[in-house]
Design a protein around this nucleic acid. Structure first.
Lengths: 233, 233
DNA sequence: ACACAAAAACTTGGCGCCAAGTTACGATTG
DNA sequence: CAATCGTAACTTGGCGCCAAGTTTTTGTGT
């Protein structure tokens, strides 16, 4: 895989973007122009530009050219507080909406069965801010703990509210891990993002403070480009 | 940009990897085989496979095929403690080495001049664990605070040691932000990674506890795939 | 029957050219 | 002179085929 020239072209365009030499909506140089400028075959230029598009920086109109995308101002998100995502966004004045995507029984091969017993259901919710999909919240809940989860799950929007309805009042967690990965095609559709927008995934759990009982394991999947992640304690 | 089939193929191969249907070193199906299986043009398959390669999952040998890369076991890294990276790794028993990459004066257009006065030098160090490049640490230091930074910078491996030599004893910071971005071609070389390995960048500063003086602004650039990031407080 | 060389079949990589869409320019018409 | 239409020049997108490397099969000689 010939990466040298392609990387140089990607670097050069990224620098143009960073230094504001290109403004959002502005047309990028054409493939032919860049091929000449960098003394590279057109296919190499195309690969570089397609990489930029996959990363979400650029959109393409056939016959017209490629244009720099407008980038939204990232939303400040405190990653290390104990407040829920909902509370954080609401307090900051954002219009937050939650849409339940699905409630599905996990297949028996799923690694969740190394952590939870009984039939485990994955409840997935899409979080939208100002009507734009920003994050996916997924909770893994056992039927042993919540026998009606299969029936209730498809209409749950807040897991905390659901747990409160079952008598749990205060919640904590005993560990949170962060990883970065790329969206599946399904996630691309849900989050309206390109194939190479990295997702920040926080894996954690929810524990009832009083009994120490694990209520769920969860994953919060954020678009990495939509938030400014504050790690300050 | 035709993304549908490409994304489906990427998903399918990623699933094969996740479910251990492919073991490291094993050969992937050829472009022609996948083109037939997914009823897609060969160029679409190639794009999908090249995406997997750019993400670091696959390596290619021309004439032979594509093979699944061995993935190292991620190193546990506590992101929210106050210990230095060096202390964390050393305490965990890893063989950590630091190589000074460069010390360069920041160009006048640099955004660092909105935060620091005087000539600012960027001191870059490469952090290797078991001789494998894992992270880049970059400190932005002003000549006003450290008049000899230009001369001393190229041989600095520990900023904390340098500050201690100047009489500073205890350090804190007043904020840390996390973002995810892709490596420049230079970073790809330094970190020995492909173009689409996301980097986790922690931006912070170092403050002298006693005087409250800002000693530096810094960025720690981690390969996102090499660590298991523990966010637990 | 075995060993070696050549050819065929397979693999990924690259390129030229045509396909499909848009814009600009020149010619024609009212 | 302005408006409209057709053509050329430009744009990105896709495909067939050849390039370059590897492996397998076939043919030949001992």
């Amino acid at each position: 895989m010939q990466g040298g020239k392609e990387a140089v072209i990607v670097d050069a365009v990224m620098q143009m973007i960073r230094e504001k030499k290109l403004i959002p909506g502005e047309k990028l140089p054409s493939e032919n122009e860049l091929a000449e400028e960098f003394t590279a075959p057109r296919i190499t230029v195309r690969k570089a530009l397609q990489q930029l598009e996959a990363r979400g920086h650029v959109y393409t109109i056939k016959g017209k050219g490629r244009f720099l995308k407008e980038e939204a101002k990232p939303i400040h998100l405190h990653l290390t507080g104990s407040e829920s995502f909902t509370d954080k966004m609401t307090e900051a004045g954002y219009n937050l909406k939650t849409v339940n995507i699905s409630c599905q029984k996990e297949p028996s091969r799923s690694p969740i069965y190394q952590k939870l017993e009984g039939n485990v259901y994955k409840v997935s919710r899409l979080r939208l801010i100002e009507n734009e999909p920003m994050a996916i919240h997924q909770s893994y809940v056992s039927e042993l703990a919540f026998p009606d989860i299969d029936r209730d799950g498809p209409s749950i929007s807040s897991m905390f509210a659901y747990y409160r309805k079952h008598g749990y009042k205060e919640f904590t967690s005993n560990g949170t891990y962060l990883c970065v990965r790329f969206p599946t095609s399904e996630e691309q559709k849900r989050l309206n993002c390109n194939s190479m927008i990295p997702l920040i995934v926080l894996e954690s759990n929810t524990i009832d403070c009083e009994s120490g009982k694990i209520l769920e394991f969860n994953e919060i999947i954020y678009r990495s480009d939509k938030f400014k992640y504050d790690m300050t304690r």
